[in-house]
Amino acid sequence: MRSDIAVDEVHYLGWGEPLLHPNFRDLVETVRALSPGTIQEVTTTGNADFRASLGGTYIDRVVVSCDGVRQEEYQKYRINGSLEEALRFMRDAKLHGHPDTFVEWKYILFDGNDHPDDLIRAQVLADEFGLDSLLFIVTNSKTRSLRYTNDTMAEIPIRSRRTKISPAAAMMIGSRVSGHVDPARSQLGDRENASLYIDECRVTRGNMLTVSGWSLGADGSYVDEVELIAGSHRQVTQTHDLRHDVAAARSNAQGARCGFLFRVPLGGQSMPDALALTVRLRNHTQDFSAAVQWPAAG
Rank of each mutant, 00 (worst) to 15 (best):
Q40G: 04
Q293A: 12
R70S: 06
L13H: 12
Y222P: 07
Y58C: 02
L87D: 02
L13Y: 13
D199P: 00
R205T: 12
R282D: 13
R144M: 11
C201T: 11
L19V: 06
P22V: 02
V264S: 05
L20P: 02
E29Q: 14
D111K: 09
V246E: 07
M172H: 02
A93W: 01
R25M: 02
E225G: 02
S166I: 00
D287F: 10
G298Q: 11
T143F: 10
H180F: 12
D199M: 00
G179N: 13
E73F: 03
S65I: 03
V10G: 09
E192D: 10
S160Y: 13
A276Q: 15
P99L: 13
Y74L: 11
F260P: 11
G174P: 13
R205C: 01
G16T: 12
R202A: 09
S221C: 14
L54E: 05
K164V: 03
T43E: 11
T278R: 10
L119N: 01
Y77T: 11
A169H: 14
H180P: 00
E200S: 08
E73A: 01
T45F: 01
R185K: 14
V177I: 15
H98G: 03
A48H: 12
D245M: 03
R70W: 07
G255M: 07
L261I: 10
P183Y: 04
E9P: 01
G55V: 09
T57R: 05
N252V: 09
N283H: 15
K76D: 04
V64C: 04
G255V: 11
N113I: 00
D273R: 12
D199V: 00
R159M: 14
R32F: 03
V223M: 06
R176F: 06
P36E: 15
L54P: 06
A86W: 00
Q40K: 05
K142E: 15
L109I: 08
A296N: 15
E155T: 12
L131F: 07
